[in-house]
């Protein structure tokens, strides 16, 4: 139970809620929120507070973020390199580490790939057509965001586990889902389900259907319309969704932990290996793997900021201001 939005960005989050509720919320470009229109108050401005109060507010904000966010991140890298660089790379070169990295990449490729295809399909159906129950359907797509990762794993154990609904049938046919790649992939697909669709739906709704209608009236087929007109218009939004989906897929812990079975060298993804090594007091090794995941997070944030700027620029006004 939780808005397990591990990493839904403000943009996605707000777009998500904005589109559920049918409101357009202006999305500021990352880092420079709305400064075009509203400059930060000058000292004489009516709209600011006395100097000492400003100082206290800034100090509180900065120290809170430093203690709760910056320090944990620094600790990851400091611990990973605490025994030197060679120990760090030696830890990463362990067969167990390599197999975890491979498995993580494999699972991410499967789940991002499938969610990419189905996310685009869902976004097309939802954004380009009017039908009853649309809001409800979007709520269903959002469900995984609000389910605890542990429960996301649990549901698959109930289906495929030894005592689950289809457990004995699977066992009889020697099909391995739980404690194997298919189960890990399924749990990952579950938790990353909304990302692509949710990044595309508001964008595609905002773009409307006119360009597609124009393409159709010019004789284009449905697929031609999608690949030549729709896709170029949504490419940044799609990349944005894929980026977030991928970050979550590689970093997922709770859901995967429940279905993986923690078989060493076989069903451990990188986050699971971080846990195992940490619990075995192999801190350097644990934090070395963790540092890779932390770098993934940082890179994701940077790319996300770039994409958000692209998305902002991509919002070309439909009419020239001079036309009115």
């Amino acid at each position: 139970m939780s808005m397990q939005t591990n990493f839904v960005t403000p943009v996605a989050q707000l777009k998500a809620y904005a589109s559920t509720a049918g409101v357009a919320i202006a999305i500021p470009s990352h880092g420079e929120p709305g400064e075009r229109s509203r400059a930060v108050a000058s000292p004489r401005d009516l709209r600011t507070e006395p100097g000492p109060i400003r100082f206290v507010v800034i100090a509180l904000a900065v120290s809170f973020l430093t203690v709760f966010v910056v320090l944990p991140l620094v600790v990851v890298f400091a611990s990973a390199f605490s025994k030197g660089i060679s120990a760090y790379f030696a830890a990463l070169a362990e067969p167990e580490a390599l197999s975890a990295i491979k498995l993580t990449l494999l699972v991410a490729a499967i789940s991002v790939g499938l969610n990419l295809v189905f996310g685009v399909i869902a976004a097309w159906a939802i954004a380009k057509f009017d039908f009853r129950g649309k809001t409800f359907l979007i709520t269903l797509i959002d469900l995984p965001f609000s389910v605890s990762p542990v429960i996301s794993g649990l549901v698959f154990v109930l289906l495929f586990g030894a005592q689950g609904y289809w457990g004995s049938w699977l066992q009889a046919h020697n099909i391995h889902i739980l404690f194997a790649v298919p189960g890990i992939a399924l749990a990952t697909i579950f938790v990353t389900f909304p990302f692509v669709a949710r990044s595309l739906i508001p964008l595609m709704q905002e773009q409307g259907t006119q360009e597609e209608e124009a393409a159709i009236s010019l004789g284009a087929s449905g697929l031609q319309t999608f690949f030549r007109v729709t896709l170029p218009n949504i490419k940044w939004g799609l990349l944005y969704g894929v980026l977030l989906c991928n970050a979550r897929a590689m970093g997922e812990f709770g859901a995967v932990s429940v279905v993986s079975g923690h078989i060493r060298g076989e069903t451990n993804t990188m986050p699971l290996l971080v846990e195992i090594l940490y619990n075995e007091y192999q801190f350097v090794a644990s934090f070395a793997i963790a540092s890779l995941l932390a770098m993934l997070a940082l890179i994701t944030l940077v790319v996300k900021a770039v994409l958000e700027r692209r998305l902002d620029e991509g919002q070309i006004p439909r009419n020239d201001p001079g036309d009115h």
Binding site: T5, V8, P271, L293, L296, T300, L301
Partner: peptide, 13 residues
Amino acid sequence: IPFALPTAVAGVA
């Protein structure tokens, strides 16, 4: 960052 950092990494850190 708390959105982006995998939970296991946040946990050990």
